[in-house]
């Protein structure tokens, strides 16, 4: 393949991934790595390096819009970033030392989880307590968020559990070059009882900082190749930009099913390739 063909085909693929990732809320990185590895035969190290870069781009690019809506909780985000950044460094060092087969298999399992979530679990509001527990109060984590024109109060609970889950999310992010937004949302929404909308926007805010923590390791090891990262970063960014623009009109349910099936197929493919030693 010539450099010209590679650049444009990867650019187009990344734009589609970024677009669908923004529409479904799953992020683009999770499909970029398997597509590069399986369809283009790109070494998984280059693929996760390029994906990590695109994850920072979409997180930072969307932050301004999310902040304006007044959902994200900067205190919760900052506190949990201590856990995600340390986890991300651990994950990136792991990525250097484990074989690519292991990375492929772990990646496949993450894809299966994402497919399951996309196909069977509609995002739902769980009942949120308005009072923080003792530690949540001491850390002043409770805040308010907009609902129908007024601002509702919410409390924050189970901080240590959330902190532990965030360490895991950071490790996965550093190991696989993904944002691991799904696990971040689970940590906040399920464990810490933070409203779903606050959890997703705060998670998006945290993803870029988490990814930046593993970027140093990736860069110094040569995982970030400019010739691969360039079309991926520009494509995902453009796709995600348009994805957020059409978010309201699109038939998200149908898209989630299509995207879920694609992710499911990629997950199985990654696990098989990892087991047979092809990736």
């Amino acid at each position: 393949m010539t450099a010209l063909t590679f650049t444009f085909v990867v650019l187009a693929m990344s734009a589609i991934a970024g677009f669908l990732g923004a529409l479904t809320g799953l992020g683009g990185g999770v499909v970029i790595v398997p597509v590069l590895a399986i369809a283009f035969g790109v070494d998984i190290k280059y693929a996760i390096g390029a994906s990590l870069v695109s994850v920072i781009a979409t997180s930072s690019g969307a932050a301004a819009a999310y902040v304006r809506e007044g959902y994200s909780n900067i205190r919760v985000g900052m506190l949990l970033e201590i856990a995600t950044t340390v986890g991300a460094i651990v994950g990136a060092i792991l990525a250097v030392h484990v074989t690519t087969h292991v990375i492929a298999i772990v990646f496949g399992l993450v894809l299966l989880q994402a497919a399951y979530q996309s196909l069977f679990k509609p995002d739902q509001e769980t009942a949120c307590p308005t009072e923080s527990d003792a530690l949540g109060k001491r850390l002043r984590l409770g805040s308010t968020y907009p609902v129908d024109g007024t601002r509702l109060e919410y409390g924050v609970r189970n901080v240590p559990t959330g902190f532990g889950l965030m360490f895991g999310a950071g490790t996965l992010s550093g190991l696989l070059g993904i944002g691991s937004g799904a696990l971040k949302v689970i940590a906040m929404d399920r464990a810490m009882k933070i409203p779903f909308k606050v959890s997703t926007t705060t998670s998006n805010f945290m993803i870029g900082v988490t990814a930046a923590a593993s970027a140093g390791v990736y860069l110094s090891r040569g995982y970030i190749d400019p010739r691969v990262a360039m079309p991926v970063m520009l494509g995902v960014l453009a796709g995600a930009f348009f994805g957020t623009k059409v978010l309201i009109q699109a038939r998200v349910r149908t898209l989630r099913i299509i995207f879920g099936c694609v992710v499911l197929a990629l997950g199985i493919e990654m696990i098989v390739n990892g087991l047979t030693g092809k990736v």
């Binding site: 010539t2 010209l4 070494d43 190290k45 040569g222 010739r227 691969v228 360039m230």
Partner: peptide, 23 residues
Amino acid sequence: YLARHHADRVSYHQFSAGGAIVQ
């Protein structure tokens, strides 16, 4: 990059670190 290298044959199948220029 494309102006200078568009006709280069590229393959990323084998990982090899790119050296100080990119690292």
